[in-house]
Write a protein that binds this DNA or RNA. Structure first.
Length: 618
DNA sequence: GCGCACCGCGCG
DNA sequence: AAAGCGCGCGGTGCGC
């Protein structure tokens, strides 16, 4: 047995590293003590489902003691401890450890998952902001610093230094290379479970006293459902994906070469792009947030004449450099951010297992990474076509119809909107008629009607996002006067929306700078962006609508069909013969009513691939 | 070599 | 009166 020690908030905590079975007596005694046990794993890396992935250490800890077990040497006792139905555990970012333990055969997700608390969830409920956004932070280290020990060790940073110095490795390769009994590795591995155990104690008090216990329970259940989705993963059509990767690489290379003939050797260098375009006599006013000339697509697209800028005054010849930059950047973005990761991240069965954070954004929205499946291009089917249903099944999907507008109507109690929703009207068209008057609408040409509807849609988005006429005009490219006029009409038709925003800001002013959502979630506002209150509450409530739908779907026994949440949509799969009925059922389970407003959903059978929902040829 | 800010761009 | 919101990721450029 090796024994190390580290101070936690003033007291020395022993960290035990047993070397032979004889060393485990103390561990058995440790296990049998009452209370929740801190749990953590150290692994060869972050890609749980890649070839050669191993769990190296499994750590157990309480407030004043940690046990760090070599996962290979002590697999038997680890399995025993994790399978004991009367034991409860606490981990930070539990999905990672649950999937590690499940993948390596040390525990089963379905058995262990319901017995694990996650301090990440509790921390998020207490303050959903990262340190960067002025919050307590959401990592183990920042949370421990705030709630456990002002001098909490940054265990991973210190280890990166050891990786470099002693192993000539970096932060990603070091985890597999460091000796499994390296004293700092073992000490810091043990420290993390002590922090987790103490964090649970401290955060539980805050959760209870702030009335967040039910919400915490719900979030743990939702997290378990998304972790099961991550375990299931999605099947990649490797043959198609490899071919697409080739094509995108070629396209990116060819257009980059074309840009080089105009002196832009590196299309990703904003400096070079600015110099190249200015050298061709281009002039533009758009600036980035920090005041430099912007060369995003809002600048390049009009120059290249790739979009229909129908309000542009001057007729001009397309700029071939701008065109080449756009095309090369797009091909490399699609290739490197999406298609490449499908190939790189897949397991031995050609499945990808994206990391689904069920409680991610400061509004509680979910996020998906590695690969970022919530962000695949939707204008075009080619990327989504890489993802296919399991053999004999079809990809199906149900999404909420204008969920944020409906949530806004419900929360702000907007009489006009509520009436239109109840009537099943097309919201933007009906709003246009309301704002411009029936006579004007009827006298208008089809083109004018389309323009009025589109204005109402833009203003609606502005209401949900908190945008004013200036920004909306800039973003949409429409004349300010038209947008301002439309916004004024909108405000007269639906005065409750602005009143609701003012009410939220008053609440925040007297409520510690935070607003509260109907589910009881606390959303801190930035002092200088109080206008975001409406968006936060609406976005967050729409997220909770989806989260609660996942639970109803699970209660109905249909969870195994859910592949992914995409903010207002659930991507699922069903055996071909049941697809239509299956997604109809899920769509019905998704539907709910808030304050008399029906939150409707639309089911759709896509086909054998995800791309079939976006126009992929049958 | 690494961390970080920034830019740009994909989604809802 | 005016203010769009939330993510993840690849890339550059810079400081350490």
């Amino acid at each position: 047995m090796k024994t190390y020690s580290h101070r936690v908030n003033g007291t020395a905590v022993p960290i035990y590293y047993p070397e032979s079975p004889d060393d485990l007596d103390g561990f058995h005694a440790f296990l049998e003590r009452p209370g929740v046990i801190g749990l953590d794993t150290e692994t060869t890396g972050l890609r749980i489902f890649s070839k050669g992935f191993l769990c190296r250490l499994v750590q157990f800890g309480r407030d004043n003691e940690a046990w760090v077990l070599d996962a290979a040497k002590f697999a038997g006792i680890i399995r025993y401890a994790l399978a004991r139905p009367d034991f409860k555990f606490v981990a930070h970012n539990a999905p990672f450890d649950l999937l590690v333990l499940d993948r390596t055969g040390l525990a089963e997700l379905e058995d262990l998952g319901p017995r694990v608390f996650d301090t990440y969830i509790l921390g998020h409920l207490c303050d959903p902001r990262t340190e960067h956004d002025g919050g307590a932070g959401l990592g183990l280290k920042p949370l421990s610093t705030v709630y456990v020990d002002n001098d909490a060790a940054d265990t991973s940073k210190a280890l990166y230094e050891v990786f470099r110095r002693e192993y000539k490795a970096n932060k990603s390769t070091g985890w597999a290379l460091i000796d499994v009994d390296h004293p700092l590795y073992v000490t810091y591995a043990g420290l993390d479970v002590v922090y987790a155990a103490r964090l649970l104690r401290e955060l539980s008090i805050l959760i209870r006293t702030n009335g967040l216990s039910d919400l915490a329970k719900l979030e743990h259940r939702v997290q378990l459902l998304t972790t099961a989705q991550q375990k299931r993963g999605l099947l990649v059509d490797v043959e198609y994906t490899e071919k697409l990767m080739d094509e995108l690489e070629t396209e990116a290379r060819d257009y980059a070469a074309l840009a080089a003939t105009y002196g832009v050797d590196n299309i990703n260098s904003t400096k070079q792009v600015i110099a190249g375009l200015e050298g061709m006599g281009e002039e533009w006013a758009a600036k980035t947030a920090s005041g430099n000339p912007a060369v995003g697509k809002e600048v390049l697209l009009p120059m290249a004449d790739l979009d229909a800028q129908w309000n542009r005054l001057e007729v001009r010849t397309p700029n071939p450099l701008a065109d080449a930059i756009i095309r090369s950047k797009r091909a490399s973005k699609w290739g490197e951010s999406y298609v490449r990761t499908f190939l790189d991240d897949r397991d031995e069965n050609d499945r990808i297992h994206p990391f689904i954070k069920s409680l991610a954004a400061r509004t509680a929205r979910m996020s998906i990474s590695n690969p970022p499946l919530q962000q695949l291009p939707s204008s075009d089917w080619t990327i989504r076509r890489c993802i296919v249903a399991d053999p004999g099944q079809l990809i199906v999907s149900a999404d909420y119809s204008a969920v944020e507008m409906r949530v806004l109507a419900a929360l702000a109690n907007v009489a006009g909107l509520k009436r239109l929703i109840a009537e099943g009207a097309d919201l933007h068209t009906a709003t246009a008629i309301l704002v411009y008057g029936e006579a004007t609408w009827n006298a208008a040409s089809a083109k004018e009607q389309k323009r009025m509807r589109s204005l109402m849609k833009i203003i609606g988005f502005g209401k949900v996002y908190g945008g004013g006429p200036t920004g909306l005009a800039r973003q949409s490219g429409l004349p300010y006067a038209d947008v301002k006029n439309a916004a004024d009409g909108y405000d007269s038709a639906y005065p409750e929306i602005n009143a609701y925003g003012r009410q939220l800001q008053r609440q925040a002013a007297y409520g510690g700078g935070a607003v509260y959502t109907p589910i009881g979630r606390r959303l801190p506002l930035d002092r200088d962006r109080a206008y975001a209150a409406t968006n936060y509450v609406v976005q967050s409530t729409a997220r909770d609508v989806l989260a609660e739908a996942l639970i109803r779907i699970d209660d109905a026994g249909l969870s195994d069909h859910v592949l992914l949440p995409v903010h207002d949509e659930l991507v699922c799969q069903f055996p071909a013969a049941d697809a239509e009925e299956g997604i109809r059922q899920i769509g019905l389970l998704m539907e709910t009513t808030i304050n008399g407003v029906h939150i409707a959903s639309e089911p759709e059978v896509y086909g054998p691939t995800w791309g079939h929902g976006y126009g992929a040829p049958a």
